[in-house]
């Protein structure tokens, strides 16, 4: 059954270009949709398309582990959190009349175009030492090995960063109940004042 894998490699050689353009043609409109869709919650859901497309690009680049991580963390985790935040900050589900700030549209488009052209020139001007030999299929092993040897310190820092972010996000997003005693005193004073005023009004 050696022909099967042969066929697969043959197909991937010719197909890679077309698949790349297919994915790009899907991803870029999704990305614009995220920015320009009037319905902000739908824009949040469109993020899945962008992240899924990028995950497909990673698969084309033979980075299977990263593609799966991208799918799990971005396309599901972060998108869901974003969508829920959108629902919380837009409780009446209104549509944006204009998603972008009108005065900044033209300058931003100009700057964007120039930035893109500049980046493209920079990309072309560099002679990349191209090395298109295939990645070893078990690059997940190499990643795991390097993460725990050469990159052990950044790996640990990443875990600490995540812990801090977790605690910080919970603290920031937590609803402030009237916990401190000063708050409670303040409220009591206010209610007392209001009730006194009311009594005064009633007397008059």
């Amino acid at each position: 059954m050696g022909d099967l894998s042969e066929l697969a490699t043959l197909a991937s050689k010719h197909m890679e270009t077309w698949l790349f353009y297919l994915v790009a043609l899907i991803t870029v409109p999704f990305a614009f949709g995220v920015l320009l869709d009037r319905n902000i919650i739908r824009a949040g859901f469109l993020l899945i398309g962008v992240f899924g497309g990028i995950s497909a690009l990673f698969l084309l680049l033979q980075a299977q582990f990263l593609a799966m991580a991208q799918l799990m963390i971005y396309a599901v985790g972060i998108t869901l959190v974003v969508v829920i935040a959108l629902m919380l900050t837009n409780p009446r589900m209104e549509e944006d009349k204009s998603p972008s700030i009108p005065a900044q549209k033209a300058p931003a488009a100009l700057v964007g175009t120039l930035l893109f052209i500049a980046l493209y020139m920079a990309i072309l001007s560099e002679g990349w030492g191209n090395n298109s030999e295939a990645l070893s299929p078990d690059n997940i092993t190499i990643i795991g090995y390097s993460l725990l040897t050469h990159y052990a310190l950044p790996f640990e820092f990443a875990s600490i960063l995540l812990l801090i972010a977790l605690v910080g996000a919970v603290m920031l997003a937590k609803h402030d109940h009237f916990n401190s005693k000063a708050d409670i005193d303040e409220i009591e004073e206010e209610t007392k004042e209001i009730s006194e005023r009311n009594e005064h009004v009633v007397k008059v």
Binding site: F45, Q64, F65, M68, L71, M72, A75, V76, T79, I140
Partner: peptide, 18 residues
């Protein structure tokens, strides 16, 4: 039979919630 095996299954099984 993908090299990422079970990780692929996990990633895929996390999508339906969306």
């Amino acid at each position: 039979n993908l090299p990422t095996g079970i990780f692929y299954v996990l990633a895929m099984s996390s999508i339906p919630v969306v």
